[in-house]
Design a protein around this nucleic acid. Sequence first.
DNA 1: TATTGTTATACTCTATAACTATA
DNA 2: TATAGTTATAGAGTATAACAATA
Lengths: 160, 160
Amino acid sequence: MAIAKLPTPSTPAGRLHEATLHSILGYQLAQASIVTNALYTKHTAQVFDLRPAEYTLLTLVVENPGGSMARLAKALAVSAPNITAWVDRLEKRELVVREKSESDKRTQMLRATAKGIKLASQATAKILEMEKQALKGLSALEQYTLLELLHKVGSLRATI
Amino acid sequence: MAIAKLPTPSTPAGRLHEATLHSILGYQLAQASIVTNALYTKHTAQVFDLRPAEYTLLTLVVENPGGSMARLAKALAVSAPNITAWVDRLEKRELVVREKSESDKRTQMLRATAKGIKLASQATAKILEMEKQALKGLSALEQYTLLELLHKVGSLRATI
DNA sequence: TATTGTTATACTCTATAACTATA
DNA sequence: TATAGTTATAGAGTATAACAATA
C-alpha cells in the first residue's frame, strides 16, 4: 500500500508551514510532547510535587518492587548517576527505600513505601483524568491505537 | 466504544512491568522519543553537525522564509532568548540570515541561505531514509496513522 | 502600554570520568 | 575483568529578569 498524501502542513501553534517536518516522526513526537508536558506541568507537577522524571521513576519502582537501579537506567535510557540523583530525592521524601541485596551485595533493590505507593496512585489518577479530558477530540479507538503504535515504536529500541 | 484491554505491559528495554504507565500518553511519547533520538544522534547529528533543535529550526526557516523569531518561539514552545541563541549559531555558520523588517522595525525576518537550504534538504533525506529503515516493523498504514494521530495531539495545544 | 529581540544570569537535566565494592 | 552504584564535575538546554527599540 502506498502512503496517502498528507494533509494541511502547518504547526499547531505558530501557523508555520511544516510540509517536510510533517512526515518526520521525531518532530511529531516532540510536538505532541509539548501538549502532554504542558498538561502535566499545569495540573500535576505542583499538586503532587513530582517532576515528570520523578513520577515515572516512582511508578516504575511501585510496579517493580525489588528492582535494581541499573534496570531503571536501562528502561529510561539515562545514565547511572542520573538514576542515583533521582532516587536520592525520592528517598529523602520517604517515597522509596534502598535495600541491599543479599544475593549480590553490589545491587540496591528499590521498594516504594506506603506513602510512595499512595502518591503514585493519586498522581496516576490525576494524569489519566487530565489526559482523558484533553484528548476528548480523539475517539477511544484513536487513543488506543496511538498508545499501541507508540509502544510498538518504543519496542524498536532493542533493534537499533 | 469501550477501550480494549491493553497487551503485555513491559518496557522495551528494561523488561520492567509498566501496567500503569502503558496507558499514559506522556510516558509512551517519551519512550518512543528515545528511539527517534537515538536514531538521529547515531546517523544524522555528526554527519551534518546539526543538533535536533538546529535541524528543526533550520527546516522551519527554510519552509517559512521571512518568518519572525517570535513565531518560531511559539511554534516550538520555547523562550525568546532560546531562539536568539539557536539563530546565532545558525547565522554564524551562514545557514540563515537575519533581515530587518521594513513594516515593523522591531522584527527580524529570517531566511535560509542556499547553503542552509541544501543542508536542510540533505539532512531531511537522511532522516526520512533512517526512519523508514527503522520503522520497517510498522506497516505503511500504521506509520501514516501514527503521524496523523500525533499531529492531532499536537493540534490540541491551542485548546489547553 | 505592549511587543520584538538581546544580554546576563541561573536552574534543570544529563553525561563522562574516577572511584569503591563486589562478582 | 566486568558490573553496580556513588561522587565530582562539566556540558547541554532552558527559563526568568532587565533592558533597548519600536509599535
